[in-house]
């Protein structure tokens, strides 16, 4: 078993954990772990730029946003938490089986798939790509983050009022 296979298996387990856990904080940690492992896969495939962005934005920045929002929530009573966990497990128990079935099915496909993506242009340097080639996308992403901040403000506008 190669190192890559171990990482891919861990990646699937982390993604399943993120989907199936009922605790938001654990889901966030699992998602960050998934992103970090995905970044390792990307790096090993030669997509350095994608790996850097995956690690910094998805594993880093997004996790911070999630944790900030979760800090504004209140934990449910233990009894309700247990009920929800059982309900969630009942709903998602086929998910690992589906993944195993898909993996099994894919193992029979031996297509000579040689995908070579075009270089991002310029000298391929991260700075050139971000600031010269895709600066408009970066601007758009800043706006999405800003919109997310307003979303938190709207969704938690009652926060503090109901607390005695």
């Amino acid at each position: 078993m190669t190192l890559m296979t171990i990482i891919l298996v861990l990646l699937v387990i982390a993604a399943l954990w993120a989907s199936m856990t009922t605790l938001l904080l654990r889901a966030t940690i699992a998602l960050a772990l998934t992103s970090a492992l995905l970044a390792v896969v990307m790096y090993s495939l030669g997509a350095t730029l994608a790996a850097v962005l995956e690690l910094s934005v998805c594993a880093g920045l997004i996790s911070v946003v999630f944790v900030s929002v979760i800090s504004l929530t209140q934990r449910k009573p233990f009894k309700e938490y247990v009920t929800r966990r059982m309900r969630r497990l009942r709903r998602f128990w086929p998910l690992p089986l589906v993944l195993i079935a898909i993996g099994f099915g894919l193992s029979f496909i031996h297509a000579p798939l040689q995908i070579v993506l075009p270089l991002p242009g310029g000298d391929g340097d991260v700075r050139t790509v971000l600031w010269n080639l895709r600066q408009l996308d970066l601007f758009g992403q800043i706006l999405i983050l800003l919109a997310g901040v307003f979303g938190v403000l709207v969704l938690f506008k009652g926060e503090g009022k109901d607390v005695d």
Binding site: R134, L136, D137, G140, Q141, L143, I144, A147, G148, F150, G151, V154
Partner: peptide, 15 residues
């Protein structure tokens, strides 16, 4: 870039 700006618009609209 079109996709990014469509997302900007959609996210703002959802909120």
């Amino acid at each position: 870039t079109l996709f990014v700006f469509v997302e900007v618009t959609s996210v703002a609209a959802v909120i």
